[in-house]
Design a protein around this nucleic acid. Structure first.
Lengths: 313, 313
DNA sequence: CACCGTTACGGTATCCGTAAGGATT
DNA sequence: AATCCTTACGGATACCGTAACGGTG
C-alpha cells in the first residue's frame, strides 16, 4: 500500500470513475494509474471499482469504505505537507477563499487589504460562487475557507462559525415616492415592482418570509446573482431594489438612494466555513480574525476540536 | 513522502529514538531507516529529531506535530488493511484482549468458549496485566480491546463502556468464626487480618473507602495481584480474604467458604476499553456483545462516533 | 571497546511512460 | 469512429542490504 496508490484511487473517484481524466489531473499516464489501482485492490483483496468490460461503472459497497479511508489518509498527507511549509516559511503560502459576490465585492476588500499588508508573500485566490458551490469548494478541499450567508451549515464535514449580522436596505432612484414616507413599511414596498437576489442567495429566504408573514405577495420582477446587477436595473427604473446594506455605498452609488429596511426583515448572519480535519496555517487563522475579530485562533481551534457548541455573536 | 517513511518515523520514536532497534523491529536495516528519515525531513523541511553528533537525543517541538500526524496516518493504514481482511475473510483474524487476572480467569472463559465456537478461525491472544498496563496496551495498539475495572478511563484516546457491576465476598476456611454471624459487617471483618487485592487493582479503592467511612482501620496483612494467590493464603490461615464474588467457585474452592459482602462495599463496574479511531472487525464487535449483551455493534459504533454520552447499565 | 548513526556502493525491484490491443458507446 | 481500460515492454529511478567510517559514552 502506497500513498501514491491511495491518491490515484481518490482522484479516479473524484473524476467520476475516469482513469484517463485522473491521469491528466495528476500529470501521469493512464496505464500507471490503472496498474497501481489493480495492485492495491490485490493487496487489500477488495475490488473497489465495478468494471463492465474495460470500463469503470461504479464503486462497490466495500469500495466506498476503502475510499473513505483513502481520502482520510490523502488528506492527512496534505495536512502534513502544509505543516512542513508552515514551519519552514510561516508567512508564505496560498490562501484560497470561496465566497459570494456580495462578500467579495463589498465586505472583503478592506480585510484583504490589511491581510496583504501583513502577509505580502501569501498568494490570495478568490473562488466566487453561490453559497452551495462555496460550501462544496471547502468540503472538497478546493478552498481553505468559505464566507457566505446561508446553506453552508448542511455538510457535516464543515464547521461554520458566525461572523457578523447584517440586514437590508431598499434602493431607489432619486426622487422616488418612497423617499418621502418614513419609515419604510412592507406594505409600501409591496406596491412597487421589486428587484432582489436570486432565491439561492444571501438570505433571500428572509425577504420572502417577511412578506409572507403579512400575507403580502410582492411582485418580484427580476432576481439577480449579485448586488451590482440589482443596482443597475434599479437605475434603469425597473423597480425598487432590496439589497444587503453593505452593498450600498453613498459615494459610489451617487445616482441611487438607500432607505433603511433593517426593521422589516430578520437579520442574516454571515458565517465562515472550515473543513473539519483540514490543517490551517497561522495566516489562515489570522485572516479569519481580521474578518471577524471575535474568532481568534484559539476560539476557532477549540471549535474545530468539537467541544464548542454553536454560539451566537 | 511515503507511508514507509512515516512508519519508520513512528517506530524510531516508539523505540526510544533508537534507529537500530526500530530496524530490528521492522526487519530491515539501520541505514535504510536512517536515510529515509533524512529524506522525509528534507522534503518536509522539518528536522524531527534532535541529533547530538551521531545520536538521536530528542524530538523537536515541530517534530512532535509531525510525529502525531505520522502516527495518525500509519494507524489509518493499519485500519485499511484490517478492512481488507475483514471484507475478504470476515471470520478469520486475530483478537487481542488485554485484561486483568480476575477477568481472564473467572469471567472470560465462558465468553471465550462461545466465541471460539462461533469463530474457530480467529486466533485469540490474551495480554494480562494491571489495569494501567491493560489500558496502555490498547492505547498503543498492542491490543484490540481491554477489559478491566478501574483506571482505564483516564486516557482520552480510549473509549470505555460499562459492561457489568460486581461486588465482593469474604472467603474464609471452613469453621471460621465469621461463618456463624450473619450478616457480615465491616466491624466484624476488621477484627481479622485481611488478604485482598493490590492497591492498583480491581476496585481495591472501594474496599478502603468503605472501612474509612466508618473510621475503621483494617489490618491488611497481604495484598496480591490475583485472586488465586489470595485464596491460597486464606487456605493457609493467614487471614480473611476479600475477593471479587465471581472469583469464588463453590465447586472448585471446596476448602473455602464464601460470605456475601455486597452490602458492605460500593459496587465496581467492569468496563471494556477501545481505542478511538481503531478499526474494529465484525468479530471484535461480536466478542464485546458476547461479553456484555447490551453492547451491540450499533451501540458501540455510535459511542465510538462520540455522540453517546456516558451511560449506565 | 561497544554501541550507534552516517556515508558509500552495488544489485534488485519497482514504478513510470510509450506503444499496442480489445471493448464499449 | 472515438473513447477508454488493459496488457506488454523497456528504461530510469528509488529502495534496500552489505560494508566501511566516524563519534560517543
Amino acid at each position: 500500500m502506497t500513498l501514491q496508490q491511495l491518491r490515484y484511487l481518490c482522484e479516479v473517484a473524484k473524476q467520476g470513475l475516469n482513469i484517463s481524466a485522473a491521469a491528466a489531473a495528476l500529470h501521469t499516464s493512464q496505464p500507471g494509474i490503472s496498474k497501481q489501482i489493480r495492485i492495491l485492490e490485490d493487496e487489500l483483496g477488495v475490488t473497489v471499482f465495478v468494471r463492465s468490460g474495460k470500463r469503470l461503472v461504479g464503486i462497490t459497497a466495500e469500495g466506498k469504505a476503502v475510499l473513505a479511508a483513502a481520502e482520510r489518509m490523502v488528506h492527512e498527507a496534505d495536512n502534513l505537507r502544509s505543516l512542513g511549509k508552515e514551519l519552514r516559511t510561516p508567512d508564505e503560502g496560498i490562501l484560497t477563499i470561496a465566497t459570494t459576490h456580495t462578500q467579495a465585492r463589498y465586505v472583503l476588500p478592506p480585510v484583504v487589504r490589511k491581510f496583504s499588508d501583513r502577509y505580502p508573500a501569501v498568494k490570495l485566490i478568490l473562488h466566487q460562487g453561490n453559497p452551495e458551490q462555496v460550501a462544496d469548494a471547502v468540503a472538497s478541499g478546493n478552498a481553505d475557507l468559505a464566507i457566505a450567508t446561508e446553506a453552508v451549515a448542511a455538510n457535516p464535514a464543515l464547521l461554520t462559525l458566525p461572523c457578523y449580522q447584517w440586514n437590508r436596505c431598499a434602493v431607489v432612484p432619486p426622487g422616488h415616492p418612497l423617499l418621502g414616507q418614513a419609515p419604510l413599511t412592507l406594505q409600501a414596498l409591496s406596491q412597487y415592482p421589486l428587484v432582489t437576489y436570486d432565491f439561492s442567495f444571501t438570505g433571500r429566504a428572509k425577504v420572502n418570509e417577511a412578506f409572507a408573514a403579512l400575507g403580502l405577495n410582492p411582485n418580484v420582477v427580476l432576481t439577480a446573482l449579485d448586488s451590482d446587477v440589482i443596482k443597475t436595473y434599479v437605475e434603469l427604473g425597473l423597480g425598487v431594489g432590496v439589497l444587503a446594506s453593505m452593498a450600498y455605498d453613498p459615494a459610489r452609488d451617487a445616482n441611487l438612494r438607500a432607505i433603511d429596511a433593517s426593521h422589516l426583515f430578520q437579520p442574516s448572519v454571515t458565517r465562515v466555513a472550515l473543513r473539519r480535519g483540514h490543517y490551517l496555517r497561522a495566516f489562515h487563522y489570522h485572516f479569519i480574525e481580521l474578518f471577524a475579530p471575535q474568532l481568534t485562533q484559539s476560539v476557532v481551534q477549540s471549535a474545530l476540536l468539537g467541544d464548542a457548541p454553536d454560539f451566537v455573536i
